Every structure is written in C-alpha cells, then in structure tokens.
Amino acid sequence: MDGFTVKVSELPFKTTEEDLRKELQKLFSPYGEIKITFTDEGGDQSRTAAVQLKNEETAVRAVKELRGERVQGALFRIDIDRLRRKRIQPPP
C-alpha cells in the first residue's frame, strides 16, 4: 500500500523544529501514525513540513478537517503533495 504525503506550508520560521513537530504531531495524531519531515521550501520567512499518512482517504480527510487550524498562532496552508503522492512507503 502506498502512503500519501500532506504538504503543510507557511509554518512560522521563528518556532523551532522540535516545537513544530510537537504541534503537528498533536494535530495529525487523530489520523493514525505519521512521519514528519521538514523541507526548506519556505525560504527565510516560513517552514514547510511533509506529513506522511497511511493512505489517500486519511490524507484527504486530514486536509479537509485541518484547514483553518493554526500553529503557534499562525494560519498554515495544507494540501495533498501531488509530487510525492505515489510510491511512498506508509509509516511502520
């Protein structure tokens, strides 16, 4: 079974990765086991995270339900990462 990646962007840059990881873990934990990796796509102004979920159904539900949520008071952007959607191993 392929995993699906949700792209979470426009995360506050002033927050540490550790704090962001904790907040994302709390937000995404209702959707099952996840894997979080950070990328430097946001440049100097914001951070981007890739959150790997078990399957497409779970990823679509997470995107719908988490739109409008905030991390460290900042509204973030959340979408299915179309570039990484296939051939990703699901979390163990």
Rank of each mutant, 00 (worst) to 15 (best):
M1V: 10
G3L: 03
G3M: 07
G3V: 02
F4C: 07
V8P: 00
V8E: 02
E10N: 07
L11S: 03
P12A: 06
K14I: 11
T15P: 04
T15M: 12
T16I: 11
T16P: 03
K22T: 00
K22Y: 05
Q25Y: 15
K26L: 13
L27T: 01
P30I: 06
P30Q: 11
P30M: 03
P30D: 11
Y31P: 05
Y31I: 01
G32L: 03
E33H: 09
K35N: 12
F38G: 00
E41S: 07
E41Y: 06
G43M: 03
D44V: 07
D44Y: 08
A49K: 01
A50M: 12
Q52G: 07
L53E: 02
L53A: 01
K54T: 04
N55Y: 03
E57P: 10
T58G: 04
T58H: 02
R61G: 13
A62Q: 13
V63K: 08
K64N: 15
K64A: 15
R67C: 11
G68A: 11
G68L: 09
E69P: 06
R70H: 14
V71F: 06
A74I: 12
L75W: 15
F76H: 04
R77E: 12
I78C: 05
I78A: 05
R82L: 13
K86I: 05
K86E: 13
R87E: 14
Q89F: 15
P90A: 04
P92H: 05
P92S: 14
